[in-house]
Structure formats: structure tokens, C-alpha cells
Design a protein around this nucleic acid. Structure first.
Length: 780
DNA sequence: CAGTGAGCGAGCTTCCGCTTGACTT
């Protein structure tokens, strides 16, 4: 029997806090929200002033009843969820659902998990802040209205099962627009001119770049000709001190970015690894938008820096958030004990911990001091100059520990080290001049991490949703993460050496991308549709603007239902109107032209199963009219860029190749790539062949190979049960029974299994949960 | 796991944020 029950959001937090509070306190966790709008229906009563209908989800029922019974037993209940909008709402839902009484319920908050902070919180309880709760209700209801009214419009106008929402739709927009920028980008060429000079000592080389890029080959040639006879003299030496400051401690988004750049983790990987470190007590909470470090952390960081590096390297710093809509309920992400050098079980955990620790320490360290030297070399009779810049570290400061990585590696291209000692007015000998054609670079495609950074800048999404949002837009097939091969590009290099000018044509591969985010056809069509009819929702400032209204609700200046009412009155009529629009063309349809063979028009559009080409008009009312034919686009093709010829070629498939054993062989391309069909069986066409050209001989060969493979697949069957078989698969032997597959324990020899043993394995295998989300497809 | 899509009409899909498991490949 406990006198006090404290409820926090996270079980790991509960464990830590229980230690601080002693015997009279029991600490439990709510595991986040315990109540929400019903996911299955709209759950907002528009007629009744937007009254939300909340339910306790089934997987939370057991937890809620446990909390209820503990709350009943306790003399005092302390609601200790986070101090932000969502946290306040969690406390309020707990209060309502657990049937708590005002006289023995207290609301407490703390921003850091330290004994002093928690004891202080207990000393200074307050009541639930209903305004803040209402701000959360407004947020929740708005998101539900947008999501559940917009998505059905897409089902009707574009394709079933699609989705739209305040966060995901803008995320897709960012990626679509970036892809369009890339396609419309025209690179400009200019010559970068670099000279090597020999200093008066006769050996030392000074490398310097012309202070201007030359547009044409003619300009380059005339400069090089001039250089043949010109004299070169140092006409300026400038030294400038430069300071660099450390980056702030990690928040969720900066951790995701750095772990991606330095360790190559995806954002969801980073979060999973961080979660492990958090649960083991090595780091503070990993979903945060705050740069703040607790006094305790500041103190221990200081001690650690002083003892490791000395006083000169320490500097007290406090960081303030710049991101829109930050709620700062937690600390920055930091080690629980900064003096712990090494933590974590796996190599991945260790690396992430090290990164967090170094970033935390560096954030409390002195500036790095550098000296930047600029040497300028004049060309006789010319106003252009060659310039060399070098940077040397005078005092390393925080760089001793940590250096933040850049997204674009070429940004740091011109980092030169120490320049040789030179004297003013010294005359230099020219050794060589190289002019290389360089091109302006197209904008980069987003990585997961750079997308998160952009979302955070726009104030869209929260630390807990960055990783899931990136997953959602990929699950909906609006966006794919993938590779793009680069293109070969020629460039000219012109050199002057020993009085001779030589020109050469070289080539390089440019624009190759790995693991970058790109829009699909569906993503593009949905985005264009939403941009046309719902530009306000897709506006990059939409979230920031409604956040201001949520803030006024929290400040008690506005009633949440009237904020929602204002929005709904504008939004809902557009939904109605858009639904009613009858367009001649399907959304996203593009006419490519006329097929010269048949004279029929060719279109591309989004069909029920994705991008499809259509040949021939459709006349739904005329039963006699010839039906159009359809062909799916290939994976690498796009509605936006496909040409008429490419589309016409799609209709060459399925192609009848010939007969084998008196049955037709047909080649086509399906969901899993090119295949042959023969006698009701399917054979994959390997990469060396094309379904458009494969010969009858090769096809027969493939079919025969497949048959041999099939024979080897079979290991054993049983008289007792014809549906039970032991087979050889991609991952080794397995048991097949009534359309399900079962794993055979490692130590067993598959051939020796008896009927009884097989049935036992089947019985012992736990029922598969229906995790495959989209298998419940109906047959058309 | 499979090569579909102009129609006979059922019922389904969907949002964002707060939290962890318990699943499988």
C-alpha cells in the first residue's frame, strides 16, 4: 500500500524517479496517451460544437484498469506528464478516465530527471491547465478534420486508400518541388583557373586561384597567352583572425542529422539506438526540441573539461532554441553522466553514445581560434589576380573534441592548411596554370536527415513524429528512397606548362545519388491535385500560423472551438465543392499523342494499380464501342517524362513467343519484373534477356531450368496428409502445410522428420499476427 | 507472390502525437 501514486509518460522515467522518491511513492507510467479519437471513424460531432468523442484503445484497457485500481488505493495522485501541450492533455485524460478527485490530485512538472528537480516539483504542485489542454484538443481535432476530410477526396479523385494530412502532404510537397527544381535546373559552365608558382627560394610551391571564373574558352586562351610573358608579384598579404563556436547540444533533429552524416544511420535507426541508450540509463530523453542542459549537467561537463583539457578549454554557454513551435518539455539529449566515456551494448550504441557525449562536452568548450591568410599575386598589366587562402588553427578549443559535419561535402573543398611564408612584393616564377571547366550544381535531393531539418525549420511535425512521417510518405508510395545513376559529362581542361598551351577533353560522372528521397508518380499527382484545390493546407506556413492560434488558446485569449469553427467554415465547403467537380480528364492524366499504327490516342494516368498507359478512348455509355487497352508503366518510367514512343512500346507486351509442348509461351512484365508464362506456370526472365526480344530457344531453356529447380525443391511428403510437405526454399528447408510455411528447428535434419514431428512443429509455431497491413485486398 | 484496370455496386481505406513492445523477414 502506497500513500502516493505518481504517473509519468515513460516507464524508463518511472523507474528512475521511483529511486529518488522513496518508499511512500509508487511511480507508474501511462505509456503516452491513454485516450484518443476513435481511429475508425470521424469522432467529432460537428453539430454539437465540435465535441470530440474519445475512446480508450483496446491495447490500453488493461493498463488503464491497473492505473485506476492503484489510484483508488493511493491517498494522493500526482500527474507528472510532460510540461507541454500533449503532456497536459495526457494528465487531463488520466484525470477524466481514472475518475480522480480534485482534492487528492495534483499536477506536477519537471524538465530534468534529477532528485532536486523532482523534489522541487513535489513542493510546488499546480492544477491542470485547461487552456493548454484545449490547445491540444484544437490541434488534435484540426488534424483529424484535415486528414479525414481530405483523404476521402483523394479516394474519389485519384485512387483508393491514399491519405493526406497537415504534416505528410507538406512533406511530399517538399520532395516533389525539389525534384522539379532538379529537372528544370540548367547548369552553367565556367573555367576555374589555378596556378602553381615557385617562390624565390626555387623550390616551394604556392597554389593560387584566379579571383574570377572565366566564361569562355577564348578568355582562357587569351589569359594563358598573356601568362606566358607576364610577370607575377605578391601585392598583398592579409591575415585575419577567425573564431569558430561549437554547435548546441543535440535535439532529436540535430542528432538524426549528425548520426546520418557521421555514422550513416537512418533516422529510425538513430531513434531505436537512442531508445536503447535511454532505457539503459545512459542518456536523457531522446525526443526533445530543447537545447537546455540541467545545472547538474553543466556542472559535471565543466569538471570533465577542466580535468581532461584544462581551464583554457572551458567556456560556460547556454543555447536558445531557434526552431518554430518548440515546446521544450525536456532537456537536450546528453549523457546522464558526462564522465562516463563509454556506454552501450552494441557497436552502434557505443558510437552513438560517443557522438552524444562529445557534442555535449564541446558545447561547453572554448571557441576555436584560427588565422586566415590571404595572399594575392598580381599579374603584370592585368587587373585580375591569383589568390591563395589558408587557414591555420591557432587554438583548437572545442575542435579538440568535436567537429560538426556538413551536408554537402564540397562546401569544405577550399579548406587549405598552412600557406608558405612569403614576402610582400616578392617576384614569383610561374610553373603551371590549369583551367578546368566547372559546372554549377543542381540542388541536392533530400536525405531523410536533411528532410527532417527542413521540416523542423518550418515548424512542421514534432520530435516524436519525424521518423514515422518519413515512413508514412514511403508507405503510401508518395516517395521512394533510392539510387539514381549519374550521367557522364564532358569537360574541357586547358593547361599552360613550359610555355605550351594544351587542351584536353575529359569526362566525369555527375549527379549520381544514393539513398535519396524522390517522388513517385502518385506522389506528384496527389501533390499537384492538393496544390490546386487546397493551397492553404499545403502552404509551408500553414502549421506555423495555426500554431499561433493554438498559443492564443493556451494563453486563454481564444476559445478552442471557435478557432476550429473558423477553420471548418472555410475548409469544409472547399471539400464539398472539390468532391462535386466533374472533370473531363482524370486527375493527373496526360495525353501523349496518337499511335501511328492504330490511329488511337495514347494517355498516361494513375490507375487503380498505379501509373498506367491507355490506348484508345473509352466510351462508358456505349456498350458497342471498342474497349481501350491498358499497360502498366515500368518502374523507372514516370507519367511526367514518358514519351509517346516509350508508351507505345509498352503495348507490345504481353508477347506470344511461340509454342513449347503444344502450349503457348508468353512474355510480359509484372509487379516483380519480366516473366514468362507457360502452361499456367511462371518463370522469371533474368537480366541478360529482355521480354521484348527473348527467343523461343532461350525461353524453353529457362522453363527447363525452372523445372529442375522445382524437382530439387521437394524433400518429403506424407501419406497421412497430402497437404503437408517438406520443401527446400531460399532460406533452407521448411515445412509447407495448408498454405502456411513453418520453420524447422536448426538442430533437426529435415529428411528425418516424421509426420508427428512436423505436426508438433506446426502446433508449436505461434499464430502469425496480421502485421501485413495491405493483404486484406478484395478481389475485383 | 503474380501479370490486374469501363463499371451490376458491399465495405474498406484516412489524420498527428504521446509512448513501448512483440512481431517477422
Amino acid at each position: 500500500m502506497h500513500k502516493n501514486l505518481v504517473i509519468v509518460e515513460s516507464p524508463a522515467k518511472a523507474k528512475t524517479i521511483e529511486k529518488f522518491l522513496g518508499k511512500d511513492f509508487k511511480v507508474m507510467s501511462s505509456y503516452g496517451h491513454i485516450r484518443d479519437l476513435n481511429p475508425k471513424d470521424f469522432s467529432i460531432d460537428i453539430e454539437n460544437n465540435y465535441l470530440p468523442k474519445y475512446i480508450v484503445p483496446t491495447d490500453k484497457k488493461k493498463l488503464v484498469s491497473e492505473l485506476k485500481s492503484e489510484a483508488k488505493k493511493a491517498e494522493q495522485v500526482w500527474l507528472a506528464s510532460d510540461e507541454d501541450r500533449e503532456g497536459e492533455a495526457i494528465s487531463w485524460h488520466l484525470y477524466e478516465v481514472l475518475g480522480l478527485k480534485p482534492e487528492n490530485t495534483k499536477r506536477i512538472v519537471f524538465h530534468e530527471i534529477t532528485k532536486t528537480a523532482i523534489l522541487h516539483a513535489i513542493e510546488t504542485p499546480r492544477e491542470i491547465n485547461q487552456n493548454l489542454v484545449d490547445a491540444q484538443q484544437a490541434r488534435r481535432v484540426l488534424d483529424r478534420i484535415v486528414g479525414f476530410e481530405l483523404s476521402p477526396v483523394l479516394w474519389r479523385k485519384v485512387k483508393p486508400s491514399l491519405s493526406a494530412g497537415r504534416v505528410q502532404s507538406v512533406t511530399v510537397r517538399l520532395i516533389v518541388e525539389r525534384e522539379r527544381e532538379i529537372h528544370s535546373f540548367v547548369s552553367e559552365a565556367a573555367y576555374r583557373v589555378i596556378a602553381n608558382f615557385i617562390l624565390p627560394d626555387g623550390t616551394t610551391v604556392l597554389k593560387a586561384e584566379l579571383n574570377k571564373r572565366l566564361k569562355t574558352k577564348e578568355e582562357v586562351i587569351s589569359l594563358l597567352n598573356l601568362c606566358k610573358t607576364a610577370s607575377f608579384q605578391i601585392d598583398d598579404i592579409a591575415k585575419k583572425p577567425v573564431k569558430k563556436s561549437p554547435a548546441a547540444p543535440f535535439t532529436t533533429s540535430t542528432l538524426q542529422q549528425e548520426a546520418s552524416r557521421k555514422l550513416g544511420y537512418s533516422v529510425s535507426q538513430t531513434m531505436m539506438i537512442a531508445q536503447k541508450l535511454y532505457e539503459s540509463g545512459f542518456i536523457t530523453y531522446m525526443r526533445t526540441d530543447s537545447f537546455n542542459l540541467s545545472d547538474l549537467a553543466l556542472g559535471t561537463s565543466k569538471e570533465e573539461i577542466l580535468s581532461l583539457y584544462g581551464e583554457k578549454y572551458y567556456k560556460f554557454r547556454q543555447y536558445h532554441t531557434k526552431s518554430k513551435g518548440a515546446q521544450e518539455a525536456h532537456e537536450a539529449i546528453r549523457p546522464t553522466y558526462v564522465n562516463k566515456v563509454d556506454a552501450g551494448g552494441t557497436a552502434q550504441e557505443k558510437k552513438l553514445y560517443e557522438l552524444i557525449r562529445k557534442r555535449t562536452l564541446a558545447s561547453q568548450m572554448a571557441d576555436a581560434e584560427l588565422e586566415r591568410t590571404t595572399i594575392s599575386v598580381g599579374i603584370s598589366g592585368q587587373k585580375e589576380k591569383f589568390v591563395a587562402t589558408g587557414e591555420v588553427i591557432v587554438f583548437d578549443g572545442f575542435l579538440q573534441v568535436y567537429r560538426e559535419s556538413l551536408d554537402d561535402e564540397s562546401e569544405k573543398e577550399q579548406e587549405n592548411g598552412l600557406l608558405p611564408a612569403v614576402e610582400m612584393n616578392a617576384v614569383l616564377n610561374l610553373d603551371e596554370v590549369k583551367a578546368t571547366e566547372r559546372f554549377t550544381q543542381r540542388p541536392p535531393r533530400y536525405t531523410e536527415a536533411s528532410l527532417v531539418r527542413r521540416l523542423e525549420e518550418l515548424g512542421i511535425g514534432r520530435p516524436s513524429t519525424y521518423a514515422p512521417t518519413i515512413q508514412t510518405v514511403q508507405n503510401r508510395q508518395y516517395v521512394v528512397k533510392g539510387d539514381k545513376p549519374g550521367e557522364e559529362r564532358n569537360y574541357t581542361a586547358i593547361a599552360l606548362k613550359k610555355g605550351k598551351i594544351t587542351e584536353s577533353l575529359k569526362s566525369e560522372i555527375v549527379g549520381a545519388d544514393r539513398n535519396k528521397l524522390m517522388p513517385t508518380d502518385i506522389g506528384i499527382v496527389v501533390n499537384d491535385f492538393l496544390m490546386e484545390y487546397f493551397p492553404n493546407i499545403l502552404d509551408y506556413n500553414f502549421t506555423a500560423n495555426v500554431e499561433k492560434e493554438f498559443d492564443s488558446i493556451a494563453d486563454g485569449e481564444m476559445i478552442w472551438t471557435s478557432v476550429i469553427d473558423n477553420f471548418y467554415k472555410l475548409f469544409h465547403p472547399i471539400v464539398e465543392a472539390t468532391t462535386a467537380i466533374k472533370t473531363e480528364h482524370k486527375v493527373g492524366e496526360r495525353a501523349l499523342g496518337i499511335d501511328p499504327k492504330s490511329g488511337k490516342p495514347v494517355f498516361v494516368k494513375i490507375g487503380r494499380f498505379g501509373p498506367v498507359a491507355q490506348m484508345g478512348q473509352s466510351f462508358p455509355d456505349d456498350k458497342e464501342a471498342p474497349k481501350p487497352s491498358f499497360a502498366s508503366l515500368l518502374k523507372e518510367q514516370s507519367i511526367e517524362t514518358i514519351t509517346l514512343d516509350e508508351a507505345i512500346k509498352l503495348f507490345d507486351l504481353p508477347r506470344t513467343i511461340g509454342e513449347f509442348e503444344e502450349k503457348e509461351i508468353v512474355a510480359a512484365i509484372g509487379r516483380f519484373g519480366p516473366f514468362l508464362r507457360h502452361d499456367g506456370k511462371f518463370v522469371t526472365i533474368p537480366k541478360e534477356f529482355s521480354p521484348y526480344t527473348i527467343s523461343l530457344e532461350d525461353s524453353v531453356e529457362l522453363i527447363k531450368n525452372k523445372r529442375i529447380q522445382e524437382e530439387q525443391r521437394f524433400i518429403k511428403s506424407f501419406e497421412e496428409e497430402p497437404e503437408l510437405q517438406i520443401l527446400n526454399g531460399r532460406f533452407g528447408a521448411y515445412i509447407a502445410y495448408k498454405k502456411s510455411n513453418y520453420k524447422i528447428p536448426k538442430e533437426t535434419e529435415p529428411i528425418s522428420l516424421t509426420f508427428e514431428q512436423c505436426m508438433k512443429i506446426i502446433e508449436d509455431t505461434p499464430e502469425k499476427k496480421t502485421t501485413k497491413k495491405r493483404t486484406t485486398r478484395k478481389k475485383a
